[in-house]
Amino acid sequence: MKTPVRILIVEDESLAVMAIKESLERTSYKICGEAADHDSAIALMKTESPDLVLLDIGLKGKPDGVTTAQSLKKIKPVLIFYITGRMEDETYERAKKTNPIGFLYKPFRPWDLVRQIDLALHNYHEGNPSENRLKSYDDDEQKTDLISTSDYLYLPDRTARFRIYIKNIIYLEADKGYTELFLTSEELDRLKRKIRRVVVAKGLSNILDYLPNTFYKLSRSVAINMDHLDRIETSYLVLGSYEVALPEGTRQPLLERLNAIRSRKRT
């Protein structure tokens, strides 16, 4: 079954929200949240991870809808569809820079909204072919920017919804500008993809910038998730079902890092 497009509504007029919900209730789209201002939209973006945001440009107060769109896109490369009662030329130019997939003026008839969204998504996907998809074969290579939240590392596919639970990354290994992410079986099952590897076209240090401090750089080419560290042997580490070689001279610094983490947890 095709996964429905998840829509976040950002609108501060209750009647407009009701009209939008009425328009979408008999479609295949799924409303995953409603927000009336910038801050609540940001909170819902982080918890619900929508695919598309229906966003009122003229939100009362500040920040306005355009600034809200800019903030949302910093969290995830989400699609923006603006709804507005009126728009000055200056506002239009600002809005255009956020690369929305569509505009619709209020008031609108219920089916106008549905058709405009359908058309906008169709045109977006036609104009953004498979180079943005995450491929699903063994030697998978990702040449795309990364985005992270407290829970997820995003590797955009065609609909910008491919995400990896950071907690389910066991360790990372780099080679010649590419970094391979080794995932738990739980994560591979959740992704429902028949892949053995996820490889990102970025160096290890660059990827670590997107990850929390539970990840420890063991060497120039290997970083481990300390939460998956089960055992430290003389020459190797055990992380779940994986064994990772322990380079000479790295055992003691690793033990010191573990002790520091344990001390912080006790306090």
Rank of each mutant, 00 (worst) to 15 (best):
L55A: 01
E25V: 06
K60M: 12
V78Y: 14
T67R: 13
V114W: 01
E25F: 04
K62R: 15
Q116K: 07
T91F: 09
A35C: 11
D89H: 06
P100F: 04
D37M: 00
G61E: 15
G33T: 09
K106D: 08
E131V: 14
N99Y: 13
I101R: 10
D39F: 11
T144V: 06
K74A: 15
F81Y: 03
D89I: 15
E93H: 02
K97H: 04
P77A: 15
K106Y: 10
A43S: 10
L113F: 03
M45I: 09
A36S: 13
M87G: 05
I42Y: 02
R26L: 02
Y124F: 05
Q116I: 01
V66Y: 05
K96E: 07
T144C: 06
T91R: 12
D145Q: 06
I83D: 01
D56P: 00
L44T: 03
S28G: 10
S71I: 06
K96G: 14
S23N: 00
L134N: 00
I117Y: 01
K74W: 01
L59W: 02
G85H: 01
K62M: 11
L55Q: 02
I83R: 03
T67D: 06
Y137W: 12
Y92I: 04
T27V: 11
D56V: 00
R86N: 07
I75D: 12
T27C: 02
P129Y: 12
R86I: 13
A95Y: 04
I75T: 13
K60W: 06
D118E: 10
S130G: 07
V114G: 00
F81W: 00
K21G: 06
T144Q: 08
L113H: 03
D56Y: 01
F81N: 02
S23M: 08
E131D: 15
G127C: 13
Y105S: 05
I42A: 00
E34S: 08
A35L: 14
Y82L: 11
P63N: 15
D37Y: 01
G58C: 03
C32F: 05
E48W: 13
E48F: 10
